[in-house]
Every structure is written in structure tokens, then in C-alpha cells.
Design a protein around this nucleic acid. Structure first.
Lengths: 146, 146
DNA sequence: CATGGATGCTTGAGGCAATCAAGCAACTCG
DNA sequence: CGAGTTGCTTGATTGCCTCAAGCATCCATG
């Protein structure tokens, strides 16, 4: 089924489609976050916390200045979704950990991304495998450089 | 090559991959915009201007409040990338039009999305067609609802 | 007409996000 | 010890974003 005789899309078309999809997905995420009382950036930070992460590490993950992370974590901590813990090995470092409430909140955000979920549901297993393989090649990781 | 016996990805994995790709693409866009002295939001607005668009239409396209558009257009207009024109049919309406410099600027932004371009270059024609077809089904438009 | 209700845009207030510059504490290596 | 580096925070400034209000214009109905 993959090889039907569709006209091959131009690179510009593909670019536009990828952009549109990225936007749609982001807005779905932002809306789900808002329903939990979070901004999209706060939710994104929370989504990184599978374990303790130092402030500096978060800045790297979010591709932003460290001073920016301070404010975001401040607001999350004020809501009890996150905790700063001292690092046992380096007293300069503060590790950020999600609280139980924080984990539960980000879990709900993921679950509520309805648009994205139902879009993915339209694909069967083989199509998902194909898509996964293609997307994986498109995602050069955080450090894809010439 | 698409049909190798990979284990079928879970929905969560696919979700994560789509999110990662969306993020990567957005940051590529933001970086390209920054090189032209634009914020990502300004570039995104400029990208919509294939013809005259009323302020209200821009708010709808960008999924934000109309008052927000006022400020963004103000800044773009101050740089000469955009112009407000009165609408001949309705004196309430102001149509936003990209100037020649604006068109040239957004063209450069698109051209400079190196990460995205080189990622797409790794796909051959058949893979691009397959990907396009799959992505098209994933993007049910702005109003995909249950 | 005329007038009441929509609609389109702007303004102002307030909060979050982002960057930069500066500063302090702690680590590291000589 | 001391110089340089690294991790985090603070303060200042700008942009984005929303909401509430306000003004001008359009439109529909009487």
C-alpha cells in the first residue's frame, strides 16, 4: 500500500506539512497543559523529570539560559509540583525532582492530548511502524550538526 | 526497506517521537528566524502573509487573542516588514500585507532551516511520498475533534 | 431612517518567558 | 593557597499572551 502512484511531494510541501504538524501537536500539548493550570513551558520542563536533574541540565534540555530555568522551577515549586534537592556530590548543584503531584499532573497532560492521540489512532500497526522508522531518521537528536 | 521486521512501536513511543520532532523543527525555525532578527512568533505571522490578511484572520490563524496580534504587527511594521492597509469593503478592517523586504526576510528564514532541510535530504523520493501520505493523515486540520 | 447588537481593532494592566550582565558559592587544578 | 571554571540566582529589559474596556463601524429590524 505504500507505493501507490501519488505524485512525489516537493520538499517545500513536505516542509510545510511537517511544520503544520509540529504546530498542531504543540498546540494540543499547550491546551492539555493549560487544562492542568500549567503553561506549556512548565509542562515541558516537568516532562523531563524522570529522575533528579540539575538546573544546568534542564537548561541544556530546554535549550535556554540557566537563569530562565530558575524562574520556571520557582513557579513549579511554589505549586508543589517540583522540589529542589541538594546534590550529595557537589554542593553547587541543585537537583530538581518531580513530586508525586507533579508526576500525576504531567501524566494527565499526556493523557489529555486528544487531538494527537486520536490522530495516531487512525494508523494501523504496520503504518505506525513505518512512520516510526521514518521519523526516527528525521530526528537527528539534539546534536545533529554538520 | 520500509518493511523490515522492527518491533511495532508503542503509542507512547510514537507520541514521544512526534513530540521530539516537533520540538526540533520548531527550534530550527526559531533559530533561523533569530538570525534574521525576528522572534519565532513574528516569523510565524510573516509566514502567513501570502496576501492581505485582516488582523482578525491572523488571530485565528495563530490561535491567539486579537489584541496580541496588534503588538506583533506593530513591531513588524516598525521594521518595515509589513504594512497595514484599510479594507475597501469594511472600514473597521485593517489588512496586513508583507512588504517586499518582509517577503524576502521570510524567504531567507525558510531557506536557513538547515537542520530540517538536511534531515529531509536523507530520504529518497519513495520515502518522502510515504511520509507525506502518513503525515497528511495525521493532520486532520485545525479542527480535528472527537 | 434610527437604534441595538455584533464585529474589528486598539489600549492598558498584569503575568510568564527569555536573554544578558553581574554576583556569590563551590569545585578543580596547579 | 590561588586562579580559573562551573552552577545557580538576581535584576533589568523586552516580547508574548490574556483579559477587560473602549471606540468605530457595520448590519438588521422596526
Amino acid at each position: 500500500m505504500t507505493g501507490t502512484a501519488s505524485p512525489p511531494p516537493t520538499k517545500a510541501q513536505l516542509l510545510e506539512l511537517v511544520a503544520a504538524l509540529g504546530t498542531a501537536q504543540w498546540q494540543d500539548f499547550a491546551a492539555a497543559a493549560a487544562r492542568q493550570g500549567l503553561t506549556s513551558v512548565q509542562a515541558k520542563l516537568l516532562a523531563q523529570l524522570k529522575g533528579p536533574v540539575p538546573m544546568r541540565g534542564l537548561a541544556t534540555l530546554l535549550v535556554c539560559d540557566a537563569s530562565n530555568v530558575t524562574g520556571i522551577v520557582d513557579r513549579l515549586e511554589a505549586r508543589g509540583l517540583v522540589r529542589r534537592e541538594p546534590d550529595p556530590g557537589d554542593r553547587r548543584v541543585k537537583n530538581v525532582v518531580a513530586t508525586d503531584e507533579g508526576l500525576e499532573t504531567i501524566r494527565r497532560v499526556r493523557a489529555e492530548m486528544q487531538a494527537t492521540h486520536s490522530a495516531l489512532d487512525t494508523l494501523d500497526e504496520e503504518e505506525r511502524t513505518t512512520l516510526y522508522g521514518l521519523l526516527e531518521r528525521l530526528r537527528p537528536g539534539t546534536d545533529h550538526r554538520a
